[in-house]
Amino acid sequence: MNIVPLQKEQLSIVAELAYEIWPTAYGEILSPEQLQYMLAQFYSLEALETQFQNGQHFLLLKDAERAVGFLSYELNCYHSQKLKIHKIYVLPTEQGKGLGKLLIDKAIEIAIAQNQKAIFLNVNKYNKARFFYEKLGFTIVKDEVIEIGNGYVMDDYVMESAV
C-alpha cells in the first residue's frame, strides 16, 4: 500500500471513492435524500476544489492497481495547533485490513512533523467507526450538532488523540 499526496487535478478520484463508500458507510444512518445532499455538498468537484484551496491536504491510499481510500486534513485547524482529519474513508471491500490505521498513522506522522499537539476529527454519533477511533486512542471531547442546510444536520462526536 502506498499513501501519496493528491494534486488538485486528481480530486475527482476522491469524489469517485466517496460516491462508492458513502452508501455503505451511511446507508443505515442517513436518509437517501440526506446522503445525496451531503455528497453533493462535500464531494462535488467544486466543493473539493474549494476545500483544497482553503488549506485541506488530501492523501490517497493506493494498492498496486487502484485507489482504495483517502484522507484529508488541515494543520492548525481553528488556530489550535491541532491537525484536523476532515475525511477518512476506505472502500468497504478493503475494510478490516488495517488500512484505516495506516491512514491515521500517516496523519499522526504529519502532525508530529508539523509540531501539532493533537489530532481530532468528527464522527457521526451512530457511525460504528467511532469504536475504531477509540481503539486507536481517540476519546470523545465533545458532541456537536452542525447545521448543513436544507434542514439537515450532522450529529457528531468530536474525538481527539494526543500525538
Rank of each mutant, 00 (worst) to 15 (best):
V145P: 00
P23S: 06
V141E: 14
S80L: 08
Q51H: 11
E16R: 02
Q10D: 05
S12L: 03
Y133N: 00
I3K: 00
K82Q: 08
F58Y: 15
Y126A: 05
E134W: 07
I88E: 09
L11A: 06
L60P: 01
K97F: 03
A129E: 03
K117N: 08
G96K: 10
L30E: 02
S12F: 04
V141R: 07
S72W: 02
A18W: 04
Q56R: 03
Q36N: 14
D143T: 15
S80G: 08
E94T: 04
L48R: 06
P32K: 15
K84H: 05
L121T: 06
K142Y: 12
Q56S: 04
T50M: 15
I88C: 13
Q36H: 11
F70M: 09
Y37V: 15
N150D: 15
L39I: 09
Y19A: 00
A15M: 04
F58D: 06
E74W: 03
F42T: 08
A18Y: 04
E134V: 10
P92F: 11
F120A: 12
I119R: 00
T93V: 13
G27T: 11
D105E: 08
Y152L: 13
P32F: 14
T24R: 00
M38K: 12
Q41N: 09
Y26I: 09
A67G: 10
A129K: 04
Q116S: 13
Y73E: 09
F58H: 07
A118Q: 06
N2Q: 11
A47K: 00
V123S: 01
A25H: 03
Q56T: 03
A107D: 12
E74N: 05
Q53T: 09
F70P: 02
E147S: 12
S12D: 06
I146F: 15
Q7E: 06
N150F: 11
A111Q: 04
L48C: 12
E134N: 07
S161E: 00
K117C: 03
V153I: 14
L30C: 01
Q36I: 07
L136S: 07
K142R: 15
F131N: 13
S72Y: 03
L102G: 01
L17M: 11
I29N: 02
Y73M: 15
L59T: 02
I13Q: 05
L91M: 11
F138A: 05
N2Y: 04
T139C: 11
Y26E: 06
V123D: 00
Y19I: 01
P92C: 13
A113N: 12
I148F: 11
R130Q: 15
Y43H: 10
N127D: 08
T139Y: 10
V158L: 10
T24I: 05
Q34H: 15
A162P: 02
L103F: 07
A118G: 07
C77A: 09
A129N: 06
I148M: 08
V153M: 02
G151N: 07
H79I: 13
K82G: 01
N2T: 08
R66F: 02
L6S: 08
Q53A: 10
T50I: 15
A25S: 01
E144C: 13
P23K: 02
E144Y: 11
M38T: 15
V14F: 06
